[in-house]
Design a protein around this nucleic acid. Structure first.
Length: 490
RNA sequence: GGUACCUUGGCCGAGCGGCUAGGCACCGGUCUGCAAAACCGAUUACGGCGGUUCGAUUCCGCCAGGUACCUCCA
């Protein structure tokens, strides 16, 4: 029953049993970043969401090929720029070679993702590395009669397509509605209809990212890369396609159209869309200018941030909400996540301190079962975490001797937390930087040793003075029964 | 304007036609020379108005408020 994995697929708007095309194998494609700026909190959401999916599928025994692209060409900046692409625009501003910009932000993205403990995908293809495949795709769609050439560009003929296929099936749009609501954009006179989207775009003379093609020098359209690369690495039909909800229309709709127009059938069995991260209730986005980059979060260098937040605090914050819900950013929420994470990690570490008894008064099997049931229910990480917190209380009771656990159950418990905390949720212990500086730690240890002596002499004035002043400088002092611990406050 | 979604206690955030979600904060306690930390325990909820039902936070309708997409966006 609960052992069946259910996945919510956007096309059906409900959870359906997951059944891979090839038993034992899963092909998954996720839309990656457009590398023209540093990754922000919003980018962390799909990366972590699909990292969870990737990790979980592997742990239940699938061999997963996970493809996440790097978009390094092709997206238009805005109406006014009339076809200049984002990468090209940024390059001109920075006086850099376009590929230099791409490389810089790709490196930055990968570094950020590694800090978040997001596993690298199996394949991370770039759009510029697959120009030939995209040209072939455009040629096929042209040959099949679903596109037309106009002034050196090639456009997808949406209305022609709609006579044979269902354009709008993913996002629930209707052609008639779209026609009514289509805005008049510049440079639209090349298109037969406002709905048509570019498959290949002619490069203007000043355009610096350009490739030769049967239609002249240009660059691929906005949606071609995912269709071309998905097919190349996962086949004509594959299991899961993921991405942010904001990509549903037009991007994913266009992908479906391109697949049908080129192959006669769709490519994707399950469409998964993660929701947005909001800030003050509004979507965090580049175009809205209300985003906080991951580097800023890690260092606390943003006016909206009260402090720095560790990558694991951010990962945990994101996992505490279900991926299909919006998640609202605030300092308070992030700090709550930070503390909750610490509690979970402390308890996980202290499983090792539990002394086994002859018989158990606790039920590890049902805890384990609840965790798997939650994951099988459309990757419900917040429920998994709630279950793990129930277990935290149990672990602490075991340590205090208020509950008992047998040796075999203790082993199961330890295995369960290792599996869910570290491997499936992908949380990890964070290095304590304060211990790195030997000179500093020597000095603090010395002061606290002096304080121990003062305490032994019941010289409370001195011992409090040492503690208070160290606290004021920024150390957190913990007295133990027979010694002390300290760290630099986060 | 069109389409879809959302509204849960101080904050974040799950969920279900009847059974304590969970975290953080707050409060009480254990521990401590006093603290801190840690741990234990308790408390507060389902936007408004109708309807269906033995019973609705959960289903339906209306209203109010909010968000997303319709143009690049995770």
């Amino acid at each position: 029953m609960d052992e069946q994995l259910l996945i919510y697929t956007t096309t059906q708007k409900k959870k359906v049993p997951f059944s891979p095309i090839t038993p034992g194998f899963v092909g998954m494609y996720v839309c990656g970043p457009t590398v023209y700026g540093h990754a922000h909190l919003g980018h962390a959401r799909p990366a972590i969401t699909f990292d969870l999916v990737f990790r979980y599928l592997q742990h239940v025994g699938y061999r997963v090929r996970y493809v996440r692209n790097i978009t390094d060409v092709g997206h238009l900046v805005n109406d006014a720029d009339e076809g200049e692409d984002k990468i090209g625009k940024k390059a001109r501003l920075d006086q850099l070679e376009p590929m230099e910009v791409v490389q810089m932000y790709t490196n930055s993205y990968r570094l950020n993702m590694a800090k978040l403990n997001v596993l690298p995908p199996s394949i991370e293809p770039t759009a510029t590395g697959h120009i030939i495949e995209q040209i072939e795709l455009v040629k096929t769609i042209l040959a099949n009669g679903y596109a037309y050439e106009s002034n050196g560009s090639v456009y997808f003929d949406v209305q022609k397509y709609a006579t044979c296929f269902d354009y709008g099936k993913l996002s629930g749009r209707k052609i008639e509605d779209l026609l009514i609501n289509t805005r008049e954009l510049d440079g639209q006179d090349e298109k037969r209809s406002g709905l048509d989207f570019a498959l290949w775009k002619k490069a203007q003379p000043e355009h610096i990212m350009r490739w030769p093609s049967p239609w002249g020098e240009g660059f691929p359209g906005w949606h071609a890369e995912c269709t071309a690369m998905g097919k190349k690495y996962l086949g004509e039909v594959f299991d899961i396609h993921g991405g942010g909800m904001d990509l549903m229309f037009p991007h994913h709709e266009a992908e479906i159209a391109q697949s049908c127009a080129s192959m006669g059938h769709e490519a994707v069995n399950y469409w998964m869309h993660n929701n947005m991260i909001t800030i003050n209730g509004q979507k965090m986005g580049k175009s809205l200018g209300n985003f906080i980059t991951l580097d800023e979060l890690f260092t606390g260098s943003h006016p909206l941030l009260e402090k720095a937040y560790s990558p694991m605090a951010i990962r945990f914050f994101i996992l505490q909400a279900h991926y299909r819900s919006t998640l609202d950013f605030s300092n308070e929420a992030l700090q709550a996540a930070e503390k909750g994470l610490e509690r979970l990690m402390n308890a996980t570490a202290s499983i090792a301190k539990i002394t086994p008894a002859l018989h158990s008064t606790v039920d590890i099997d049902s805890l384990r079962q609840s965790c798997f049931a939650a994951m099988n229910d459309d990757f419900n990480s917040p429920i998994v975490i709630a279950n793990l917190f129930d277990g935290v209380r149990m672990i602490n009771q075991l340590i205090e001797g208020k509950a008992a656990i047998s040796q075999p159950d203790l082993e199961k418990l330890s295995e369960l937390y290792n599996l869910f905390v570290f491997e499936i949720l992908g949380l990890q212990l964070e290095a304590n930087e304060s211990a790195d500086n030997k000179v500093l730690s020597g000095v603090v240890d010395l002061l606290l040793t002096l304080r121990m002596e003062a305490k032994a002499n019941k010289d409370w004035a001195l011992s409090d003075k040492i503690r208070n002043e160290l606290t004021a400088i920024g150390f957190a002092i913990k007295d133990l029964k027979d010694g002390f611990e300290w760290e630099i406050k986060k």
